[in-house]
Design a binder for these strands. Structure first.
Lengths: 335, 335
DNA sequence: CTGTTAGCGCCTTCAG
DNA sequence: CTGAAGGCGCTAACAG
């Protein structure tokens, strides 16, 4: 409840000096600063954010845009980013965008962010060019995690390499008819991870001299039920499939369910590999190409802060992945 | 970039009228309102939040306090709350608190929330009395999800009944030596769900005339690895255990891993039941007492908004749970 | 129904 | 090194 004026009065200085002293600005004598600090503490003074925002234009808040919080990748990125930001006294404003199969999602509206954040972190949300432009138009730092336009600061995997690694693992085991459960049906942007993972898949097949067939790919919408349904569909179309590469662990878990539904043993009848390194992957015995989502969130947040502070930052941080072999993959049955 | 003054000038009215018109307040003629709206839209006017906060004392922001975002219950509550709030134009400020086994966590600091939120939602974060008092001292609406003090608005399960239901299911299957993997070692508050679930466990055992033994309980820290370790410990202490009730699905998954580690078959050698209804429970074949975390988050958010608007709200919303039977539970082996 | 006038609480030149 | 004073952009009485 104490205002800056109370502190000023108590310390016998002006409000300007209090402001300077408390924010660690120069041009305040040590003695004065100590006195101000002491009085501020004693009175329990805390600056009113809206007042200082109004005066400075800064909010010490970062906007976090994401389609979900309850999925592995997103939850971990958010957690990593929030903690990194909190550590330096920044708040996180959470904005989710419902993304559904059929209906188009609500568009990203820069007006909701304007004057409300010092920067924006877009987590795994595919934006069209207009949306990106509108965020750029906020004239505040902008960074992407998981995927992002080529000309924006982005923290992500090498998704082509990731898809390649997963597929290659299956090929190395001897599989020759490999299905692919991918992420999204229609891409609003050209920089989508599922598209690139799919490219890696195709590349690995081609390199191995294996036929690539559109019938071997199906959309699993990045969730368990989608993975289950599309794997079932895949197996209906091509009963000779012996392995499936799913573009996320959650879809891969769906693939495991589909196998069980159909009475197929894993990995004897069907091998499954995912992407993520989901916490529960071990329980399911899921082979996966693992990534560190938490750290990507934290690093992206730090990058964004650098930008907020006007420091130069690398345009792109590419994270490593690691193949984790578990029970869900093995050599195909001898046919 | 256009300010309220620009709109006022363009519409040929005062800023006060613009403010009234745009916020749908009475005492503005239809014609004027339309004109103002048109000009505001044309100029792309959006009120600066910090300015209106400073003037009104309202922020249209809710603070969300939680220990994690990457765990099932928390992620779903957060998602539900965020969407409910966004729908009515409220922002969510996310605050996480690292909770670790050993070290004490950072204390909840009301100063970070002061003048920054219109209300606070505490999600599954055990607070001590001082912390609760400090939040109450903010003089803003406060609500809890998952657990909360008796005298505060809380949305939660009947945790005693939940623990009872899970344990009862095992007893009904014929188990007589039932272990319990609980949540936390030392409770900072008396209203913790793990403590109540444990109470339900004890009650069910007592009712069935089965001995209750402290050795049959172990702390699993609410995560997979904790569940794994404590289940292993449990089985070491009491090799005659035939079933385990874990206070969360994530710990239950850990119990499944422990069983596998020890070469025990589930459910023939060990039955496992959890609590939550985790999305991946089906993949693991996990029997569970399911709850709807998303809806609890959404409802708590709505309750909080009612309070912000000065409406009376029920002190307590108790959510139903439902036993979902899967492969992880079955009758004990005939000994 | 509409305009005028003070603030809301802090920051930031500009003097001194 | 410090203080005075204006202003950030909007809202809330109070007149009219």
């Amino acid at each position: 409840m104490a205002g800056i004026e109370d502190v000023a009065r108590a310390a016998g200085v002006s409000t300007a000096t209090v402001s300077r002293a408390l924010r660690g600005l120069p041009n305040v004598s040590d003695a004065t600063r100590r006195r101000v600090l002491a009085e501020a503490t004693r009175l329990g003074y805390v600056p009113t954010p809206s007042a200082s925002s109004l005066a400075t234009g800064r909010t010490r808040t970062i906007g976090l845009l994401t389609p979900w919080v309850s999925r592995w990748f997103f939850a971990n990125v958010i957690e990593g980013a929030e903690r990194a930001l909190r550590d330096v006294g920044y708040d996180v404003l959470l904005h989710t965008f419902v993304v559904r199969r059929d209906e188009p999602r609500r568009r990203v509206d820069p007006d909701v962010l304007r004057h409300r954040v010092d920067g924006t972190l877009v987590v795994g949300l595919p934006l069209d060019d207009d949306e990106v432009r509108s965020l750029v138009g906020l004239d505040r730092p902008l960074a992407f995690v998981g995927s992002g336009p080529d000309d924006q600061v982005t923290v992500r995997l090498d998704d082509v390499a990731t898809g390649y690694a997963a597929t290659r693992h299956l090929l190395d085991l001897g599989h020759r008819v490999v299905g692919h459960v991918t992420g999204v049906p229609d891409l609003v942007s050209s920089w989508s991870p599922p598209a690139e993972r799919s490219l890696g898949y195709v590349r690995a097949l081609a390199e191995a001299g294996v036929d690539v067939d559109r019938e071997l790919e199906a959309n699993g919408d990045f969730d368990v039920e989608g993975g289950r349904a599309s794997t079932a569909e895949l197996l209906r179309r091509r009963p000779d499939v012996t392995a499936v590469f799913a573009a996320s662990d959650e879809m891969a878990m769906g693939a495991l369910l589909a196998a069980r539904d159909l009475g197929l043993r894993v990995p004897e009848d069907l091998s499954v590999v995912g992407v993520d390194g989901h916490d529960l992957g071990e329980v399911a015995g899921l082979t996966t190409v693992a990534q560190d989502a938490y750290q990507q969130g934290a690093d992206a947040a730090l990058l964004l802060l650098e930008m907020v502070n006007g420091a130069p930052v690398p345009q792109r941080l590419t994270y490593p992945t690691e193949l984790v072999r578990r029970r869900s993959t093995g050599p195909p049955r001898a046919s």
